[in-house]
C-alpha cells in the first residue's frame, strides 16, 4: 500500500506513452500490447479477490462469459457497437458472479478454488456441447462499430481505435481498483486475508464483503474477456473457460504480485512477450519455463515482480 500516491500519476504517464507510441509500433507489437492489456485486466480482476486471500482456479469462467457474451451479442443478436458489446460482456460476467457469489462467499482456501473450477468446467461442458456455438472450434464475430462510426479501412484505423479503447479502459479499471483498494471496503479485504474472525468481531460482514469483491472481480475479468475477443475476432471454449486458461490467469497474478494495480499489466506484458518468442523458438519448453518460473517466484519472490519494482523505487 506504500507509494499509493504515485500510482495514479504513473498510470497516467503510461497511458499517454502507450497512446503516443502507437504510430511507431509495428502491427504485431500493437496487437501484443493490446492483448497484454486485455489479459492484464483479467488478472486485475483476480487480484481483487486475491487481496482478500482467495484464489480462484476457475476465473476463466468470467473471462469466457465476457468473451462469449460479447461475441454472441455480435453474431447472434446483431449488436454492432463495441461499447454495447462491452456492457453486455461485463454484465453477463457480473450477473453470473452475483448469483454464484451467494454460494462462493461461504467458501475459503482450496474449496473456494475448486468450486470455481467446477463452475468453469460446467460452462466449458455447456459450450463444447453447443453445436450452434461451434463447440470446440468456437465461432468468429463481425468487426464492431464505435458509437455509430463504422471504420471502412479494416486495418490501420480499426486497430488504433480499438488499441486506444483498450488502453483507456485498462487505465480506467486500474484507477477504479486502486481507489477501491484504498477504501474501507478494500481494507476489509486485507483484513479478511489476515484474520476473518477479527473482521466479524469488528462488526463487518465477511460474506457480504467477499460477495462484493467477487462480483467486481468477475466484471473486470469479463471486461478483459470482451476486449480479447474484440482484438482476436474469434472465441473458443479452450482459450477462454478451460481450466488451463484459469491456471494461466493465476500464474500471471502470482508472477506479477498483488502489491499494486499496475503489477498485473506489467506481468501480463512480460508473459505475452516471452510467450511469443518461446512458442516460436522452443515450443516444447514453454510450459517447463512457466513451471520453473512459478517455482522460482513462489520460493524466492513471494511478492512477485512488483516487489522488485518496489525495491528499485525505494533505492531510487
Amino acid at each position: 500500500m506504500g507509494g499509493g500516491g504515485r500510482t495514479i500519476p504513473a498510470l497516467l504517464v503510461t497511458l499517454a506513452v502507450l497512446l503516443a507510441v502507437h504510430p511507431m509500433l509495428p502491427g504485431w507489437a500493437v496487437n501484443m500490447v493490446g492483448l497484454s492489456l486485455a489479459n492484464g485486466l483479467a488478472v486485475l480482476g483476480l487480484l481483487v479477490i486475491m487481496r482478500a486471500g482467495l484464489v480462484s482456479f476457475g476465473h476463466g469462467l468470467y473471462f469466457g462469459l465476457g468473451s462469449y457474451g460479447a461475441a454472441m451479442a455480435a453474431t447472434f443478436l446483431g449488436v454492432t457497437d463495441a461499447f454495447l458489446m462491452i456492457a453486455i460482456g461485463m454484465a453477463s460476467a457480473a450477473l453470473v458472479a452475483f448469483v454464484l457469489g451467494f454460494l462462493m462467499a461461504r467458501y475459503r482456501g482450496i474449496f473456494f478454488a475448486l468450486l470455481n473450477l467446477a463452475f468453469s468446467m460446467l460452462l466449458y461442458g455447456l459450450l463444447v456441447n453447443s453445436a450452434v456455438l461451434g463447440s470446440t472450434d468456437g465461432f468468429s464475430m463481425p468487426i464492431p462499430s464505435y458509437l455509430g462510426y463504422a471504420p471502412v479501412d479494416a486495418t490501420s484505423r480499426v486497430s488504433f481505435l480499438l488499441y486506444a479503447l483498450i488502453c483507456v479502459l485498462a487505465f480506467a479499471a486500474a484507477l477504479v481498483v486502486h481507489r477501491y483498494l484504498q477504501s474501507t471496503m478494500g481494507y476489509i479485504g486485507e483484513g479478511i486475508r489476515e484474520n476473518e474472525v477479527r473482521v466479524e468481531y469488528l462488526g463487518a460482514s465477511v460474506r457480504r464483503a467477499i460477495h462484493i469483491k467477487y462480483v467486481i472481480a468477475a466484471a473486470i475479468t469479463g471486461l478483459g474477456g470482451v476486449l480479447t475477443v474484440l482484438l482476436i475476432g474469434h472465441v473458443t471454449p479452450e482459450d477462454t473457460v478451460y481450466w488451463t486458461k484459469s491456471g494461466e490467469l493465476v500464474f500471471v497474478a502470482i508472477l506479477s504480485g498483488t502489491g499494486s494495480v499496475a503489477a498485473p499489466f506489467l506481468g501480463s506484458m512480460l508473459f505475452e512477450l516471452v510467450r511469443t518468442y518461446a512458442l516460436q523458438y522452443a515450443p516444447d519448453l514453454w510450459q517447463m519455463l512457466l513451471g520453473a518460473t512459478l517455482l522460482a517466484v513462489i520460493m524466492f519472490l513471494p511478492g512477485g515482480l512488483w516487489s522488485v519494482v518496489r525495491l528499485a523505487r525505494r533505492k531510487a
Binding site: 484464489v55 482456479f57 482456501g109 482450496i110 478454488a113 491456471g247 493465476v250 500464474f251 502470482i254 516444447d284 519448453l285 514453454w286 510450459q287 517447463m288 512457466l290 513451471g291 520453473a292 512459478l294 517455482l295 513462489i298
Partner: peptide, 20 residues
C-alpha cells in the same frame, strides 16, 4: 505453508512434467 501455495507448487511441477 498455505494449502493454496502448495497447490501452486504442484501446478508448477505439472507444467514442467508436461514438457519433460
Amino acid at each position: 505453508r498455505d494449502e493454496i501455495v502448495i497447490v501452486l507448487v504442484t501446478y508448477a511441477v505439472f507444467l514442467i512434467l508436461e514438457d519433460v
